[in-house]
Nucleic acid binder design. Structure first.
Length: 574
RNA sequence: CGGGGCGUAGCGCAGCCUGGUAGCGCGACUGCUUUGGGAGCAGUAGGUCGGAGGUUCGAAUCCUCUCGCCCCGACCA
């Protein structure tokens, strides 16, 4: 490609709307342009990078027996009603009506569509397992798009769906897909991708993993053990915390005037927050009250609680609601709680700690020395004890006991063992060898392609621009022809350009005749890995200067050795 | 959806407080010179000041409403 004809200019000044590194460089390098909040046009350079990412993904998906297909972006609402998600998914699902006032949606993921296909195409165990995938536009009406391609409304995703006759088959295939993902992210040049346990969320299912590109600007918080053997999303992270267990002291009611917060009570009674039990009330979507007890220094993790209760809606209860069940806000107590009016949930921290300070369910009073075993013996059967605490940096790792570290990550891929959630709801069944009908067992596998491109830049750049891995660079070689308007330079540059083309290289030729600094700065901003500089000086010696993007060194190469040299450089990459 | 910020030429901004009919840098176009880290000179084109309403003799500037964009948070396969 000749740069004089390349659509998409490089911009010197940083657009004020761009904050993150990848956003700035994608904009400035002429890779993308914003059309509306979270909606982008891919310029030719950006399209080339994305095509390469897609090609690698296709190869790896085909290698695990995936079959590429293509489903529609616009889907009938009734399909989403069948799965139940028409109502359960929030406003991210863009709903609209067609001219006949029929409810339609823009696909934000394609479980419904793929099950619609599967229930007519997959009817026998002999066809299983099967995996189909597509590279397709998704639309999610995000409340707040941000950070360029990291969080957008319209985006391209590779989504794959597997179908199995039994869960062993799903689990085995899930592993294969996991490995394919590891290899995809390696091949597109990501330097640090952590596979972590995740919360399946609205997708449903039990097992799910997220592929996180470690980056400062990431939106997700990841917990890691120092040796990386434990890796988890904040939503599911657990800890190896131990709890103080000593002999139970006598229960003692104490006057604590006006002390309603954990900090105040602890300070007033000369104790630490770890020696207290905190009462937190939630209200479910059905207006039922949940009474959570957790050690005072810990915070409730609402995602864990939501999963435990199998409630999609959960909010903090109002004082009024707390009073309605006979509890006293600020002094609520597990002791004497109206167990028939409220679901009592004990975090393991409160269950396994002894002699806690808890509310007395009476204004201005607390109890010392609450012990679950002794004081709630009669409820021991009915009270659920679970881990619903938010993990903290520095908490012991559940596997190694080492302090957990926290880092930020960009979710570039995720995989789920869906099970039969969609197939059962939508009647996608197959006949097993005994002629028995059963719902298909499913897995699904996604990669955000634009996001992956942005994540690579986050992990591979310098102050001047991206440093593309060879595997996804828009071009492999960038020729800066200085003084291109001089015939001698033009002749050599054009010849080299043609020669490299003939040898199979992807080449960008800067034939604009700009000043050296201008040309170099644009080359840095584009970030192509191999650079050749041709100028009156170099051709006088029959040479070109070779430089690798992102490294300091440069050297002179004889013009007739250039192809060979570049081939060697290319080989070094793979 | 809560909080904050910003909308003036393709991009980055000044002007607004204290109303008087729009400017700077970069970019674009033409010509000449220049050519190894974002060149110089001369010239040209380009803006209903996000939109609507109001106050005023007069509004980019003051008031009201509205739309859009960015950031933080909530939310988020």
């Amino acid at each position: 490609m000749r740069m004089s004809k390349l659509v998409g200019r490089q911009v010197k000044e940083t657009p004020k709307d761009a904050q993150t590194v990848s956003h700035r460089f994608l904009l400035r390098g002429g890779y993308i342009r914003s059309v509306s909040a979270g909606i982008y046009t891919l310029l030719p350079l950006g399209r080339r990078v994305v095509s390469k990412v897609e090609a690698i993904i296709r190869e790896e998906m085909d290698r695990v027996d995936g079959q590429e297909m293509l489903m529609p972006v616009v889907l009938p609402g009734e399909l989403w009603e069948e799965s139940g998600r028409y109502d359960t998914v929030g406003d991210e699902l863009l709903r609209f009506q067609d001219r006949n006032e029929k409810a339609m949606v823009l696909g934000m993921t394609h479980e419904e569509a793929v099950v619609h296909m599967a229930r007519t195409e997959l009817s026998s165990y002999k066809q299983l397992p099967a995996m189909v995938y597509q590279v397709q536009t998704k639309y999610r009406d995000e409340a707040r798009p941000r950070a360029g391609l990291i969080r957008v409304r319209e985006f391209t995703m590779k989504d794959g769906y597997s179908f199995h006759a039994n869960s062993e088959c799903l689990e085995a295939y899930y592993e294969r897909c996991h490995d394919a993902y590891v290899s995809i992210f390696q091949r597109i040049g990501m330097k640090d991708v952590q596979v972590i346990q995740a919360d399946p969320g609205m997708m449903g299912g039990n097992v799910s993993h997220e592929f996180m590109a470690v980056a400062e600007c990431g939106e997700d918080t990841i917990f890691l053990s120092p040796d990386r053997s434990y890796r988890s999303n904040r939503d599911v992270a657990t800890t190896g915390l131990t709890f103080v267990q000593e002999g139970a002291l006598p229960l003692e009611k104490v006057h604590t005037p006006g002390k309603t917060s954990i900090e105040d009570v602890a300070a007033f009674l000369d104790a630490t927050p770890e020696q207290t039990g905190k009462a937190v009330f939630y209200t479910t979507g059905n207006d039922e009250l949940v009474f959570v007890v957790i050690r005072g220094d810990l915070e409730v993790n609402e995602t864990k609680l939501r999963n435990h209760l199998k409630e999609s809606e959960l909010r903090l209860a109002t004082d009024r609601e707390i009073e309605d069940i006979g509890s006293v806000p600020g002094y609520a107590s597990p002791l004497g709680v109206a167990a028939e009016k409220v679901q009592l949930v004990f975090d393991r921290s409160a269950r396994h700690s002894s002699n806690l300070i808890v509310g007395a369910n009476e204004v201005d009073y607390h109890y010392r020395n609450f012990n679950f075993e002794r004081d709630l013996a009669e409820l021991a059967e009915s009270v659920e004890i679970v881990d619903i605490a938010t993990a903290r940096a520095g908490d012991p790792c559940p596997l190694t006991g080492e302090p957990l570290e926290i880092t930020r990550g960009i979710e570039v891929g995720n995989i789920f063992q869906l099970g039969t959630k969609y197939s059962a709801a939508m009647g996608a069944t197959f006949l097993d060898p005994n002629g028995k009908r059963a719902p298909l067992i499913m897995g699904c596998y996604g990669i955000g392609i634009g996001r992956a491109m942005a994540a690579v830049i986050e992990q591979s750049h310098d102050q001047y621009g991206p440093i593309w891995p060879m595997s996804i660079a828009p071009y492999q070689v960038h020729i800066c022809a200085l003084n291109y308007k001089k015939e001698a330079v033009r002749t050599v540059a054009d010849l080299l350009y043609a020669e490299l083309h003939a040898s199979g290289f992807e080449v960008l030729l800067d034939d604009r005749g700009e000043k050296a600094g201008f040309s170099f700065a644009d080359a840095d901003l584009i970030g192509i890995p191999l650079r050749l500089i041709i100028s009156p000086k170099t051709i006088a010696n029959g040479e070109a200067e070779f430089k690798r993007r992102g490294s300091e060194g440069k050297d002179m190469v004889a013009l007739d050795a250039v192809v060979e040299r570049l081939k060697a450089e290319l080989a070094r990459e793979s």
